[in-house]
């Protein structure tokens, strides 16, 4: 009985207007960050539950179309997490993502969309804590920015 009332109160706070709970897409590379996320989970590190992870083989596989499409479909933010530069399983995939990310930031800025909605971080398979910190930072950032323009207003 007690636990059910508790549940009720948390769902209520989620739906109330003041408490904005962002929906964030995280794209993690198979070899470092996805394993890092696994480690964060098995180490029972606390993370906000706002992030949905999609595993890709390498951040070099991430087409900027994925990121823009996610924002268009109403994701409040997109986090990309890969191996540290120099550690890529495929040698240079993460460096390609880094270059694409730089241009993408330029593009968002020029278009008038806050470039902080997208974020690139490096977290190795041993850095569960770095991954969890990254998630916490991202959720905090997006909470300050507010919901995606695609979810506000008419939609």
């Amino acid at each position: 009985m007690k636990s059910s009332t508790k549940m009720k109160s948390t769902t209520k706070s989620k739906t109330s207007k003041e408490q904005f709970e962002p929906r964030i897409l995280a794209l993690c590379c198979n070899w470092c960050s996805y394993a890092g996320a696994d480690l964060a989970g098995t180490s029972r590190l606390q993370m906000p539950p706002n992030v949905r992870i999609i595993r890709v083989n390498c951040t070099g596989r991430i087409d900027p179309t994925f990121i823009l499409d996610a924002l268009y479909q109403g994701a409040d933010g997109v986090l990309i997490s890969g191996c540290h530069p120099g550690d890529c399983h495929y040698t240079t995939g993460n460096l390609k993502m880094r270059a694409r990310f730089a241009l993408l930031q330029n593009l968002l800025e020029e278009a008038g969309v806050d470039p902080r909605r997208i974020h690139l971080q490096w977290a190795s398979a041993a850095e569960g804590d770095v991954f969890a910190d990254g998630i916490r930072g991202m959720v905090e950032r997006i909470k300050k920015l507010g919901p995606s323009p695609m979810r506000r207003g008419g939609k």
Binding site: G60, D63, P64, T65, I67, L68, D69, K96, M97, R98, A99, R100, F101, A102, L103, L104, L107
Partner: peptide, 18 residues
């Protein structure tokens, strides 16, 4: 998305710092 594809390709063929 035309521009996104251009960015994807440029990321792969350039040899520069961000």
């Amino acid at each position: 998305d035309h521009g996104a594809k251009i960015i994807a390709a440029l990321g792969a063929i350039t040899d520069m710092s961000p």
